[in-house]
Nucleic acid binder design. Structure first.
Lengths: 192, 192
DNA sequence: GTCTATAGGTGGATAGAC
DNA sequence: GTCTATCCACCTATAGAC
């Protein structure tokens, strides 16, 4: 999944910079000044494109979810079987972590209590979409006997998402991406 | 596990208030002013007991880890078998979430990139201790055939911790503690 | 669309009276 | 040990020139 947009107008560059800062430092850990410094423009210029920080955050989330869902659609179109789809899903997380970033939504979930309501809604929308997509893949895999799990697919999907988000946070704190890889493999192995 | 201290001098009250704020809003989401308002004292008074925010955070983490390890020791002394110990371990997380709080260290892990180094070290110390304790219980359970898992105990412990931390973050965002309970049960079931 | 300048508020932190 | 008063840096955000 490419986080950065193909087009690279000023709003896109601002979103790219804000996205990186947010994934590394969190919503309450970066400021317009940080973006301004990175892009060598003034804060006032940023406010022209994104009037408020809440607006910036909301549009950031919208783009992130859009890109994420596009990556999931690409997996669907690949003709991979259910197990391969799950592996590619985990790889999306790996790629984010490889850039020393947290999942944008995992970060925002931690800071949830301090977020403006529009951003909160986008975070929930992201996780709902992830659960639904994963549940579909899991059901498909169960039917083809490629995947095995007890109970409902949506519950199994939630365990996987929770495990991946948690493993990402921990691996990043330890500075050991390999921790995430090992946990990701185990989570997939439990579905074999 | 009781987060609040039995003694309740001023430093303890400050730590109690800061702990709650940090678990709900994160390290970058609360200020000395928030604590001062809650305790109806001035900010200057807080600085007398905890000169800097970094110092406050570090001592908060030290107390949290101490209380957490005491809770683990209590489980060890209870004569419970390995499976019961694991269930009680999950219950510690449930109790924290029941107060609408995140695990203090899960929160700090998300904000890791912005933390003063002394606090970072305490966060790692917490997770190391948790992994070690869990790995011990898992090995004990495997020997008594009460618990089953592939690979090393430390790896299985990491999957469990990641799953619990992630499930906590998500359940709190959705405002549905039941999400955590269901994921917790599934994570334990995978060790049956 | 980007700039300078600035408003109005809050952040962590300190000096010194009581 | 707690207070008043204050410092200075930084925050989000806006007005108005170019």
């Amino acid at each position: 999944m490419a986080s950065a947009s193909l087009k690279s107008g000023t709003p896109q560059k601002i979103l790219d910079s804000a996205e990186r800062l947010l994934q590394v430092r969190g919503y309450n850990g970066f400021s317009y000044a940080d973006i301004a410094t990175a892009l060598r423009v003034t804060k006032a210029s940023l406010h022209y494109h994104f009037p408020s920080k809440a607006d910036l955050g909301r549009r950031l989330m919208q783009r992130y979810t859009q890109n994420f869902l596009a990556a999931l659609t690409a997996i669907d179109s690949s003709g991979a079987d259910a197990r391969e789809k799950l592996q590619r899903y985990v790889s999306i997380y790996s790629d984010v972590l490889a850039n020393n970033r947290m999942c944008l939504c995992g970060m925002l979930a931690a800071e949830y209590a301090t977020l403006p309501k529009p951003i909160r809604l986008e975070v929930i929308r992201f996780f709902d979409a992830n659960e639904a997509w994963l549940a579909g893949v899991l059901d498909e895999g169960r039917q083809s006997k490629a995947v095995h799990f007890a109970g409902s697919a949506i519950e199994a999907a939630r365990v996987l998402i929770a495990g991946l988000e948690g493993a990402m946070m921990l691996a990043r704190s330890y500075g050991e991406a390999a921790r995430f890889e090992r946990t990701g493999r185990r989570l997939l192995a439990e579905l074999a």
